[in-house]
Every structure is written in C-alpha cells, then in structure tokens.
Design a binder for these strands. Sequence first.
DNA 1: AGTGTGAAGGTTTTT
DNA 2: CCTTCACACT
Length: 703
Amino acid sequence: MNETRAPMYLAALNEQQRAAVLHSGGPLLILAGAGSGKTRVVTTRIAYALDDLGADPASILAVTFTNKAAAEMRERLAALTPRAHDVLIKTFHAFGAWVLRRFGGEIGIDRGFLVYDESDSLSLLKAELGNACGPAQIRGWLSLISRAKDLGLGPDADERELRKLSYDRRFPEIYARYEERLRATGNLDFGDLILHALRLLKESQTTRDRLRRKFAHVLVDEYQDSNTAQFELLKELVAPSASLVVVGDDDQSIYGFRGAEVENILTFPDSFSGTEIIRLEENYRSTRTILAAASAVVAHNSRRMGKTLITKNEAGNPVHIVLFGDYTEEALYAARLVERNPQTETAILYRTNYQSRIFEEVFGRLGIPYLLVGSVRFYEREEVKDTLAYLSLMTNPRDEVAARRIINKPTRGIGEKTEEKAMTAAATHGGDVLAACRDANAFASGKTAGRLRDFAGLIDGLHTLLAGSPLTHFIHEVIRKTELLDLYTGRDEAEGTSRAKNLEELVNAAAPYGQGEEALREFLENTLLSTPEYGEAYGGRVTLITLHNTKGLEFERVIISGLEEGVFPSERKDGDGDIEEERRLFYVGLTRAKRELVLTACRNRLLYGQPIRSAPSRFLDEIPPELVVKEDLGGGSSAGAVPGRASGAWPPGTRVYSYEYGQGYVETSETKDGHEVVTVHFETGRTIKILPKYHDLIKAGDE
DNA sequence: AGTGTGAAGGTTTTT
DNA sequence: CCTTCACACT
C-alpha cells in the first residue's frame, strides 16, 4: 500500500473499512452491520481501483438489488471520482437484461425482447389456462413458477426438483405451458433475466470467457438478498483471477418471499475458496439508544451469524412508542410531529403500500408536502401501460399480452370473441398478431375484419413515423393518433384524475433517447426495469415509504407506523409467514433512524373497510423497557371523547415525561371546556401549560 | 359490441 | 373499502 499516494478519502475510513477498500487477492466477504458505512466502502473501493490501481471503468461491475440502491451508488461514486461514468452499476435483473440484450441471440433469445411484469405474466397465464382456474389460483401458479426460476429451475428441470415446490401434480405441466406461451411472445419475465443469463453462461463458453475477461472487478451489494439463480450466475461470471467482493448483513435479509437465500451469505466462504472476511461493526448512523433497541430486537432471532454493533454516538432520546385509537389519529400525530420540526428529515414507514393512503390524505389536507416512494409504480399505471403496449407491439408484433391489452382500447368494436380468434390466427403467422390482423378476412366477417385491418394499419402507420422523428415527438404522436390521449383526457374530466398528465410525463421521459427503433428499445427497457419516483414539486422533508424500500436509506427521524399484530408482523392465512423475516424487516426499519425513533400502533384497524380490534405488535415488547417511553393517546372508540380520561388524571405533583421537553412534574391542574389543562415545570427550567389530551405527555414510569 | 348493475371476494413486501 | 366478475340490457 502506498500511503503517500492514497487519496484523501481513505483517511476518512476506520481501520476495517480501509482494509476492505485496500484488500486484494482472493474473494472478500464484508459483513456490514446497519449504518456501518457499507455503501461508502463499496464506492470508495471502486474509486480507489479507478484512481489508484488504474482500473478500466468498463471492467468494473457493481450489482445491487433495488433500483434505488443502484441510483444511490451511482450518485455517491460520481461524487468521489470523475472516472465513474463507464462503471456498470445495475440491479441483478438489469444486468441480466444487459447480458441477454447483447449475447442472448446465442440461446435463441430475441434481441428486442421486452420484460413482462407480474401483471403481464398474469394475463398471459390466464390466456393459457382459460377459465379453468380462478384468478387466485393463477396467481398461485405464477408465484410457484417464479420461485422455480429463483431456484434456477427451468421448466425442463428435474421433475423431482420441481415437485419440491408443489405437491400439485399439475405444476410441471402448467409451468411448461406458461413457458411455451411466453417464448412465443419473444419476451421475458423477471425471473428469465437471471435464469437465461445463467443458461447462456453455462452453454456458451465464448460468451462466458468474454464476460469473465471483461469484468475484472465484481462487487455485489446486499448479498444476503441474492437467490440461488443469482448465486449461480455469479459463480459463472466471475473468473478465478477476478476481484470479487460481496457485502451484506444476514440480519437485513428481507426478501425471502421472493427466493432470497440467506444461506448464500452464510456459505460464501465455502463456495469461493480463499475468502477473507471483514466485519464492519461500528455504526455511524444512530444514537446509542436506537442501536441498543434494534440490537435487542434482532437478538430474538435464532438463525443468524451474530454480530455486535457498537457506536461512539451519544445516547440520545428514548424510543417513543405511541398508541392510538385509529389510523387517522396516528396520521394526525405524525403530521403534528412534522409540523413541529419541519426541518427535520423524516420518514414514515409502513408494512404495506396501501397504508400510505391515510398519510397522503392527512398531509394533503394540512398542506404538508411529502414524497411518496414506490406505491403505484409509474410504469404500472393503466394509461402508461397502454401506451407502452402500443410501443411494444410495434417493436415486437408477437407480443400477445400487449396486443390483447390494446386491441380494443380505445374501443373500436373488437370484442372478446374476435380477440380470441385473432390470437389463434396469430399462431399461423408465426405468432405475429399484426400479420393476423392484416389478414383478418381469413377468420372474421367483413365489418369486423375491417376493424382488425384498421387496427393493424394504425400501428403500421405509426411505425413508419418512428424512423425519422425524435422519440418524444414520436410517442406524442402515438398517444394522439391512437386516441389514448382523448380517452384519458375525457376520463380525467369525469373522474378528476390526472392520467393525461402522466402520459405527458411519459413523453418527457423519452427526451434523452434520441430517435429511431434502437432508441425506442432502449427507452422501453429502461422504463420497464426502473421505478421513477414522482418527487416533482416536492418541497418538504417527509418521505412516505414501505419498510422494504428503505433499505440503504437513513433519516434523522423515523416513524414506523401500524405496529399491530396482523399488520406488522403481517399475518397470512396459510400460516407460512416467517416471523424472523418480519423481525429483520423491523430491524431494518429501526436502524434507518439517526436521532429520533417513533413507533406507533392503533387499537382499531380497518379490515376490508370494517374496523376491527387489533393488538399491539409483539415487536414492541422486544425493545428493553428502559430504552422506551410509552404513551397511550387512544382509548377505545374512534368517535367522541375517550372514556376513562376524566378530569383529574394529572393531579399536581405527578411526575411526567414529555418527548419534546423532557422530565418534569405537574404544578397545577384545572379543567377548561371539558379539557384538562396542566402546568408542568420541566427540569430544563421551563414551565409550560399543556393540554395532555393533545400533547405527547406521559406519566413517568407509565407503562 | 358496449355498458351498467349487483354480488362476491380479496391484501404483504420487489425485480 | 376496493377491485373484479358474471349477467342482463341497450
């Protein structure tokens, strides 16, 4: 190591971090606790390789699991070195697409393939199985198929292996039928991006060698989230001579439901011989209290490597637990916290996306700006998918799912029966739906055939515009000529929505892509594999986000909401919920907080619109009581006054604790307009009048 | 072919 | 509370 040449950024690292950056030789496993500077180590390591070891940017591959993490890494690397531009930073799936786009032809994959999302796969399987299965069952089959792909099992895999996934004897056959139908469209689903990339590397020695030569440096972030297929892909991809670094934390494995195998990180040293392990156990993010709470919670899990996180940070405030009557109170409380310290960067975390709704509503009503992350992904919106379907069908006329979606949208007099006939006819044209429509006289009567020909004509006509015009202009023509724009403008007026605006946004999103067929393909690929956030006009400091989406992020103040049994931990009827994974998810949430941590729960929650009682999450009891301040702001009913809170609940002399002001005692107590008003003298020397009902005041030692 | 009605049924989490 | 689906009507 050459200390004199070592750049400034190395000086900012601790000993373990520096060792992780400078390590050379065999594979490296970095076990990085929450907040231990993991991303910093990865980005610094890349910058060091570029700036000091003279590595070629194009020889570096960094893989993450979410788009957000990839974006974050790109940004932070760019801040370290100007040579970052050509470094390949992608999600595992996007990397699979990258490989297949270039070399997939060798195993018969269409260069112009698009990626079907879950709903596309669903409609495809539905088309294949007809009315024989209900929607729930189709969903079930699809999830099995996707698990199989996670395991690296294609439809031709050993039947005994496939049977392990399902006792249902029909599964292998249904998997095979789905796959055949999918291949006929020329497109791929998410699982295929990994599975076929793996197959390619196994079958084509040329491509494997080529990629192995190219990627002399491979880094994998969030390695605990990798699944079996991804692990195998990695083994094929990385040359023995290459530098392989994986970073992860078994306590933060939260994607088991989509096939992630914690085993991959536990057995990494066995799979890659000569592995060195470096542990990052110093947390730079959270207060001592927050870290102690999180560590105590995750200690309840049995299947873990075990590690001890330490921090030099101050103890900070206790963890604040608040109980409410219902979700509205919970949301109002969060809003009030935000209003009180509007400059404090805050995140509101929840288990499921739909829980964001009440916060959106309350924040909107109070005029508090917020950033909503994830929720309904842009490209999953109906109007966006419609437009993308037109574009897809143009580039790939075998795209059955796209064709079904738009063949009668806007309505053009083509019904279900006709649609079915057209799809059947497509088979005789090599799957080309547009060709079948042009030749509609073969299976449809005069008028209907004319409509089908018009449909094909519309798309062919649009296609001719593609070559000469910039992509933005072209897509605008598509939404105009297909009359999607009119359709949604009309609906917007009727329903008060803003779908037409989303279409404009889609047009704008195409701006960086130049023109022509190639630009369109690139645009489609990027759109389908990424999730842009709508942060426009966001002027505030509040983020609404699912727990899963927060991985890798940090906030000054974190509010985890909906801590109720059945919600978090979530409860599944079929009973194979994994409580330890839920707990890890909770751990992830807790460790996002830098300084302030608020946990909230409600006594009543809504199930299908009906209020039902719910018990506070067991996780709340797993935090040591001495780290916690508990408060109960919600009696029984959500309507009217709370019984049992009559005047005199705060007699003079009561020792109290306020989250805002600290310890104190009640000096006087009186009742005004039916509300109890107390004067509290705090240890800080301040004396303040407080309405306990509306303030987070609690009795010291209160449970 | 398209549209409107009522009843039934359904919730994780992401690529 | 929402969406989705079957069925009857225009």
